[in-house]
Design a protein around this nucleic acid. Sequence first.
DNA 1: TTTCCTATAGATGTATACATCTATTGTTAG
DNA 2: CTAACAATAGATGTATACATCTATAGGAAA
Lengths: 221, 221
Amino acid sequence: MGTDKHTTASIYAILRDRICLLDYPPGTVLREATLAKEFGISRTPIRAVLQRLEHGSLVTVRDGVGTIVTDIDAAELCDIYEMRLKVAELIGVLAPRDITPDDEAAAQALLERAKRLVTHYSASEYWQINHAQHALIADLIGNSVLRETWDQLYYHSARFWYREASRAPDGVAQDLVAELSEISRALRARDARAVGYIQRNFIAYGFARLKAALNPDQPIS
Amino acid sequence: MGTDKHTTASIYAILRDRICLLDYPPGTVLREATLAKEFGISRTPIRAVLQRLEHGSLVTVRDGVGTIVTDIDAAELCDIYEMRLKVAELIGVLAPRDITPDDEAAAQALLERAKRLVTHYSASEYWQINHAQHALIADLIGNSVLRETWDQLYYHSARFWYREASRAPDGVAQDLVAELSEISRALRARDARAVGYIQRNFIAYGFARLKAALNPDQPIS
DNA sequence: TTTCCTATAGATGTATACATCTATTGTTAG
DNA sequence: CTAACAATAGATGTATACATCTATAGGAAA
């Protein structure tokens, strides 16, 4: 295993997903030599990947120490989420591309998967649907600069929502069903602006939940 | 010359500025070996810098060919500017930091420099003031994610505005005076939201001018 | 026992040789 | 003369040896 032909892009996606899915929790120290050995290549392309991850604020490279998966404080988490709320509102505003029946079908398929998730929960399946939903919506964005920003914000914050959802998974599947139902409705109506606002709202719900977890108002200990 | 001790960060800033100031016009092919020789280091740290520039969409690295300074088509220029218009509106909205007398003084100093520019124009001085104004406003942004996005958008589009301003420099100094006057007024009023809206407006003025240059409505040929 | 200093293991940063890829130029077949 | 192809120069991509930096463990002095 691991003897496949990896490209820097594929290794980047692999490491990014490991960080997002908390296979590498915040604080994890990655070693270039170890990763190089795992993927059967030298340190040079591994370094390029790590530097790219560093640009996305997913890791910090420290000379003589290693590459450390970043953690986040409450203030920075708020910064990311407040930004995402505002950027979501732009999705349907800045020249979205035309919605097609394919988009509708893709959302419907995700909705069916989410419904199955309610009765048979799986963290892995939850995140696959989540990622697919993100990709679906990002693909609607016609403005390339907005799409890039939207993507970066998503990957910057995903793991912190994942951590919270893993701690208290109650209702996340139902919420995902509700979100995808609304998105399907908006796509049927060919209303890209509605899609953006639905995203905004569900990001806000998640944000409220994260804030409640950070500042537990009812510490009945 | 060039024997000073450069760091990757300083080399990054140098090359970024050369691209922004059109010392390296779009289409220029940069060679790693040449740059390495110029800065007295090996290709390795040069490659790290070029990859960072590529991440900011300032260059494209092509295997076997070289690192090419990116050009831009009308559609992408519109994408960037439409995004900047929207992001500017967020400057005073997403938790700006408190405005201090120092900010006021800095803006006033820039205004004085801009006034001198009207009678004694210098492209170099124009861009130093422009950059300083950008840094001043970016520093007001309390949301770190917004600040990063704002910065990236600025450096992504700066050279295209510079190219247009160089072609027809009439009025750019006066416009800069007007913009800095308004910014000074907003800072005196401690009104960060006003600063953001002023930025939005002058970006819109520049955008209109760029569009007019791209689609000359009066092609009397 | 505590504290400070020093030696060291092991990490990233850098330089360089080599592999691979691209564009071009020159040659040859039609 | 034109077009296709092959050889080649020179670029980036990769692997690796070496330089430098960091944290830590261990020993000596107070």
